[in-house]
């Protein structure tokens, strides 16, 4: 790995470790390998959002050309959010693309991702299905996001009705995550979800 990239990452790692956000439990950063090319981030779901109480893991890959090119970051924890792919965890965020600046740091990036959880950008969606629900049925979107946070990120709010519906599909022999995706996609209408799964 290029000298400058490693040097920068080491410095940023230290910066994050002694930041007040780490002390407050908002973000975390861990090394995955010793050559500083891969890290694991962690952000806490912000208060007053459906993600509250959840812990979200991020995969961070540092390119050879860092910091002149942005780090590659995706959610490892499954999440229901308009700007994150519910399938791959890919994130749509301007500073991870064309608005990246070499002077930006991992700390600011992690905080920006956390801010994205508080304020989605439905006009710049990564996941069209989620974005549509966010716009057209905000209440149901909130419930769905809360349910995903509960199941995948350890959030506190269990949605009994949704759990029941997932269980119904499980009983039919369908994979749990697949069942949840189908139900979330079809606004928790059991019939349409089933139809889609068996067609």
């Amino acid at each position: 790995m290029a000298n400058i990239a490693a040097k920068r990452i080491k410095r940023e790692f230290k910066e994050v470790m002694k930041s007040e956000e780490v002390a407050g439990g908002d973000i975390k950063l861990e090394l995955v390998n010793d050559c500083w090319t891969e890290l694991q981030g962690e952000i806490a779901g912000p208060p007053d959002t459906p993600y509250e109480g959840g812990t979200f893991l991020l995969e961070i890959k540092v390119p050879e050309t860092y910091p002149f090119n942005p780090p590659k970051i995706r959610f490892m924890t499954k999440i229901w959010h308009p700007n994150v792919s519910s399938a791959t965890g890919a994130i749509c965020l301007d500073i991870l693309k064309d608005q990246w600046a070499a002077a930006l740091t991992l700390r600011t990036v992690l905080l920006s991702i956390q801010a994205l959880l508080s304020a989605a950008e439905p006009n710049d969606p990564q996941d069209a299905v989620v974005a549509k629900q966010y716009r057209e049925n905000p209440q149901l979107f909130n419930m769905t996001a809360r349910h995903w946070t509960n199941i995948y990120a350890g959030g506190p709010t269990s949605v009994w009705e949704f759990n029941q519906k997932v269980q119904r599909l499980l009983d039919m022999g369908i994979d749990e995550h697949q069942a949840r995706v189908a139900l979330s996609t079809y606004d928790w209408e059991l019939e349409r979800a089933t139809e889609q799964l068996f067609c």
Binding site: K7, R8, A102
Partner: peptide, 8 residues
Amino acid sequence: SICAVCAS
């Protein structure tokens, strides 16, 4: 005094 990009 310090370059914000490379920290040198």
